[in-house]
């Protein structure tokens, strides 16, 4: 990282250990009165400066709803999501979002994709290209600056999206299952890349995922959610050594954490599966 970027990042951020994102008693309900479905039910936790937190839960536990609330894409909810004592009610400049779906702009080259947020802010072309090149290098895509997304693999496209989010220098990196569409090997390698970036930038990160090994590999803490309505079942500390690489996957401690969290998740995942089957059976009965 250049000294300019290091300084700007350090100046804009509170000290390590301070909570930067506070999720306090958040409730989100969809639909009206009798048909109302509570997606997120009194969820509270916080994310400290420089920390990597994962939210894990079975499908239907309200993970994506929580992602959209924190990202400011769902305006109305009960409770508070706070950044700098400011309640989130729309997209906040401190939050950079990486989406589950591939989200590069197909009509822009890699460098123009990454420089996009700076272009919106009116940053001069040479400066935005310099900064974009830095983050392209950080995600390991040197030499691909002039390529278009159609010429890249799925994993490379997701790295472009991550670089595009990081170029804005967000205080909180918010990711919704960014590797969901990738194969296991690519996922592990990209996990390495994310860990490296997080350690290098001291990037506060909140990852929404349903992948157990990914959550343990990357996180300092894991928030385990229940099946619908989504509540916090447990918050687990992951005390694996840092700096961390995907080698950690083979360690006993890793296996221990995976088993421990799976114990919490299994019941919720089974409940989710049973409810889905019941709905499918009822649908079949009613034709």
């Amino acid at each position: 990282m250049t000294s300019v970027e290091t300084k700007s990042r350090a100046a804009g951020k509170p000290e390590t250990g301070q909570p930067v994102l506070i999720i306090d008693d958040v409730v989100k309900t969809f639909g009206d009165a009798e048909e109302a479905v509570t997606a997120v039910d009194h969820v509270s936790f916080n994310v400290k400066q420089g920390e990597f937190v994962a939210v894990i839960g079975p499908s239907g536990c309200g993970k994506s709803t929580l992602f959209n609330i924190i990202g400011g894409l769902l305006g109305e909810y009960d409770g508070n999501v706070m950044i700098d004592d400011e309640r989130i009610s729309g997209p906040h400049p401190a939050v950079g979002m990486v989406f589950q779906e591939e989200s590069t702009f197909p009509w822009r080259s890699v460098i123009d994709n990454v420089a996009f947020p700076l272009e919106l802010r009116g940053v001069a072309k040479s400066e935005r290209y310099d900064r974009a090149r830095h983050f392209i290098g950080l995600v390991g895509l040197d030499g691909f600056e002039k390529r278009f997304p159609s010429q890249l693999s799925g994993g490379m496209k997701q790295r472009v999206s991550i670089a595009r989010t990081l170029v804005s220098n967000p205080r909180i990196l918010l990711m919704d299952e960014p590797f969901a569409a990738l194969d296991e090997q690519t996922r592990l390698l990209l996990g390495d890349k994310i860990t490296q970036i997080q350690q290098e930038l001291k990037q506060t990160t909140l990852l929404i995922t349903h992948n157990l090994t990914e959550a343990v590999q990357l996180s300092d803490r894991i928030v385990v959610m229940t099946y619908r309505p989504g509540k916090v079942k447990r918050i687990a500390d992951i005390n694996l050594q840092r700096p961390r690489t995907s080698d950690v996957v083979g360690s006993d401690a890793f296996g221990h954490y995976v088993a421990e969290i799976w114990n919490d998740l299994r019941e919720e995942a089974s409940r989710g599966m049973q409810e889905t089957e019941q709905v499918a059976r009822a649908d079949r009965r009613h034709g």
Binding site: G72, P91, P93, M97, F99, S103, F105, L120
Partner: peptide, 12 residues
């Protein structure tokens, strides 16, 4: 694509 619009929204 919805996700591209969401990228735009997230960037205010």
């Amino acid at each position: 694509r919805r996700v591209l619009i969401n990228v735009g929204k997230s960037l205010n």
